[in-house]
């Protein structure tokens, strides 16, 4: 099917053409509706999880910011936010620095056991989270990392590494090696070459890998529940407990804030992807 209906289309073709578009519209609706519904619901003045008659009539007093106020004043939520903000960047830093080095190593032409190494590095993404969580819980308890800040950071860094490896190796595929050779022939040492030539060119890949690692840690709940203790309760963990026990409308306010954060991150990744393709002389697509 082409994207435009030719002027000579028969009635059957017209029905099929528009019918298909309506079907796709419904599926898009299914994808977006849950996320879009909770945004207005989070401004509900009542403690209900559905639209009150007042909200449907757009009465201003039916809307309020009280759930947001609760999020920003409730010590439990604030502690959770603080933990999330402390854990995710540190895990990202570890994942990005180790992952970028390894991706550069993997992109060299002669790497022994490349397949095995690659499989090990991707494995945290493949193994179901509950299994990683179980293994880490058992093992970290043995070595005394269970229930500590560093235990959670190390676990989250491990989970974020595959994303860094994948994005950075993908950027390195288009990297022109003659640039580093040119730098070397002009007298630059390997460190200078890395920071002045290679790094600026692969930076978009590194940053978007880092964003993936960040969102992995920031959103992660299964591993932190097992590896962390009450002192490492993060935002998703707090939401999970809230949803399981007493569901409070503050969760919707938190959810809305997280949706806004994801929109921001998505835009950054998209801009970086386009920039990286432009730098490598590909057409953005």
């Amino acid at each position: 099917m082409d994207h435009k209906l030719p002027p000579y289309a028969t009635t059957g073709q017209r029905i099929w053409f528009y019918g298909f578009r309506v079907l796709c519209g419904l599926i898009f609706f299914f994808l977006m509706a849950p996320i879009l519904t909770i945004i207005p619901l989070s401004f509900n003045a009542e403690d209900f999880f559905t639209f009150t008659p007042g909200m449907l009539a757009f009465e201003p007093e039916a809307y309020s910011l009280k759930h947001y106020v609760d999020f920003f004043t409730n010590p439990d939520w604030q502690q959770a936010l603080r933990n999330s903000v402390l854990i995710a960047p540190m895990a990202t830093l570890l994942a990005v620095s180790l992952g970028t080095l390894a991706a550069i190593g993997l992109s060299q032409s002669h790497v022994p056991f490349k397949g095995t190494i690659m499989a090990i590095m991707i494995s945290p993404m493949i193994v179901p989270l509950i299994i990683s969580a179980a293994g880490m819980y058992f093992f970290y308890s043995r070595v005394g990392l269970q229930g500590t800040y560093w235990g959670v950071v190390l676990a989250h860094a491990a989970l974020g590494i595959p994303f860094v490896i994948i994005t950075v190796t993908a950027t390195l595929v288009g990297f022109d090696r003659s640039l580093t050779r040119a730098a070397a022939s002009l007298g630059a040492n390997p460190v200078t070459t890395f920071f002045r030539i290679q790094m600026p060119l692969i930076l978009p890949g590194v940053i978007s890998g880092g964003l993936f690692a960040f969102i992995t840690s920031f959103d992660e709940v299964v591993v932190v529940i097992f590896v962390g203790s009450a002192g490492q309760q993060t935002l998703p963990w707090q939401m999970f407990t809230g949803l399981r026990e007493q569901i409070s409308p503050t969760i919707l306010a938190v959810a809305t804030i997280l949706v806004v954060i994801s929109i921001l991150l998505l835009s950054v990744v998209e801009i970086l992807r386009r920039r990286s393709e432009r730098l490598r002389g590909m057409s953005p697509g």
Binding site: L101, Q108, V111, P112, P124, G135, A158, I161
Partner: peptide, 30 residues
Amino acid sequence: LRAQKLRALALIAPLLLFLLVTFVAPIFDM
């Protein structure tokens, strides 16, 4: 060629060690 392989492995080694301790060992422990 050997130097090149070693250089590549030296770049990969920190991450590989990190993952062996933080991820692979826990799986084997399980």
